[in-house]
Write a protein that binds this DNA or RNA. Sequence first.
DNA 1: TTGTTTTAAGTGGCCAGACCAGTTGAGGTT
DNA 2: AACCTCAACTGGTCTGGCCACTTAAAACAA
Lengths: 221, 221
Amino acid sequence: MSSVQPKVYLEVIKQINQMINEDQLVSGDKLPSERELSDRLDVGRSSVREALRALELLDFIETRRGEGTYIKSFGSYRLVEILLSFLLKDENTRKELTETRRIIELEALRLACERITNESVRQLGQFISRAKEEWSHGDLPVEEDYLFHKTIVESCHNRLLLNLWVSLVEYNKVAISRSLQREGRMPVSLSEHEEIYYALQNRDCERATMAMKQHLENSRF
Amino acid sequence: MSSVQPKVYLEVIKQINQMINEDQLVSGDKLPSERELSDRLDVGRSSVREALRALELLDFIETRRGEGTYIKSFGSYRLVEILLSFLLKDENTRKELTETRRIIELEALRLACERITNESVRQLGQFISRAKEEWSHGDLPVEEDYLFHKTIVESCHNRLLLNLWVSLVEYNKVAISRSLQREGRMPVSLSEHEEIYYALQNRDCERATMAMKQHLENSRF
DNA sequence: TTGTTTTAAGTGGCCAGACCAGTTGAGGTT
DNA sequence: AACCTCAACTGGTCTGGCCACTTAAAACAA
């Protein structure tokens, strides 16, 4: 006997996936209740729960106590985040993280040069202004820094790439604020942002890339 | 009251992760049994199972009935696979996937030019030879094709990057073999591989990159 | 002693049932 | 019409049970 039958909870996941496809369910729609699934698929409720919990961990679904289970949108940031939390145990991986982030951000910038909208460019400008203002008040514009970079990656209109980037950076947020706190770093960082901004305004890929390289180099995450 | 206490199964995942770190457990090591975890963490066994099933789906652990639960290697390749099986319903995501893969592979190649060992270069040569041989026998050297690319990404010595690449490509294997089956594609693909191989042998980054760009372009995954 | 068989303990797989804690909506009260 | 109240439903969790499988110790046979 080697007829290893697949585990029930995996079967349930398949069924749910199929259910979504057949019924054309989209993000926000409600899934049948655990009890109903258990009934309909003729499996125990615990198996249904194992399947749902796994999908929840992956951010595919969202469960609201007392209400039900809902399909989530494409916000699977947690995916890589989980991966990293299990993977990132030594110094080596940190270097890999930085390197990978650099790659993704630079390439995203390249794509953004061709795809960015005027609206997004305008936003970038705003972030710089707001950062300057905060800085003049003596505050550290960590959030603006983050949004500046994120907007750029968003502007390549590749959600997968954005997902990866967010996951990588999320993990590094501490390092970012530490970087900005370095003596004299802030003004330089700001002018680097401006340079990137101007380059993007002119869709000057070469110049933008050079500026970003410089910026990432100096930031030393 | 808004003190939403975290779900138990998430807590269990945290604990397990911590357990792995503290006890310096590595891939292949055995985790405590479900009943013992349930006992030690003072939660129901069902909660433990929900946690374990979720981790299993992510390929972090492997459960063998009658034996126990074991930590798996960094083989979290299944991640994106699962993600995509749920989300790859529109053409858009497919494009993003291809684009992201292209970026990662090209940049990995750049890094590999500086970091690749002679041994790896030799292996690349072997893969080409073997592919030629198989092809002369009338077989499609899908595996060799895959290994050729994988070895290159491995040679950048960034496991995170490798993980991402494998995740993306794993999903695309079907596409790969379909690509190779295209009339007259195989010989061209082989010669493109050779060009990359020669460039890598000479650590000629520029030439290697150009060749790879060409190759990926023609492959049309 | 050695090699084989049996058996018991341990483990994951799965289920049924129970209770708690939120949410919702229908029906009654004001 | 606006406001309760409460029953029904939903997820969250635990308990305890039974099955199938693995392993190793114990019993047995050579």
